[in-house]
Amino acid sequence: MTGADALFGVFAALACGGALGVAAFRSVARMAFSLVVCLSAVAGLFFLLNAPMVGATQLIVYVGGTVVLLIFGVMLTDAGVGRRMKIGLLETISMTFIAIGLAAALGWTAVGLGRAIPGAPVLDEEGVEIVAATPDTLRPIGLKFLGLGGESGVGFLLPFEIISVHLLVVLIGAAYLARAKRRVDATPETPPEATRETASDGLGEQA
């Protein structure tokens, strides 16, 4: 066993455990915590896969941004910390069967695909290198974002620009929806409470 294998085991166990937690917990807050564990462990897997850039993005955008947003959503919409969602027994059983079936099918595919892919993991026997040394992926990725092709292969200038527009649009849309209605003439059917209004206002500003 190499160090990378051991680390993979740890991260994989955490990721799968977190995912199972998200699926199994009935309290939304606990689900959110499981999600944090799962996503952070996935970031760890990215580091193991020599993708520190992706891992860092996962941490800063996903865990530090998206999940916080989701927790915000939980806090603003959940009635209480410990409140559990009620799920019927029948639903639980059917879900379990579906889950087992899907997992079996996908696992089967995964095993086969993994066997078919010839490349062995680029593991260093010495172990020291595994975490410490990462090949330079930063500059190639940056050049790919700037480039259109040429010598650096396929460039991703277009998606990079499109996604900027996408983010802009989405933020405007989200800010519009989350913003408390300022107009006098339109009265919502159930006036939101004052605290919620300020909260969503703050969120809109944040976005």
Binding site: P159, I162, I163, V165, H166, V169, V170, G173, A174, Y176, L177, K181, A186, T187, P188, E189
Partner: peptide, 21 residues
């Protein structure tokens, strides 16, 4: 990217009437 670009703003458009249930 294209599918997302066509979908996500569409959610906003569908929910555009903010006061409406």
């Amino acid at each position: 990217l294209a599918v997302e670009m066509a979908s996500v703003p569409a959610y906003v458009l569908v929910g555009f009437r903010k006061g409406s249930r």
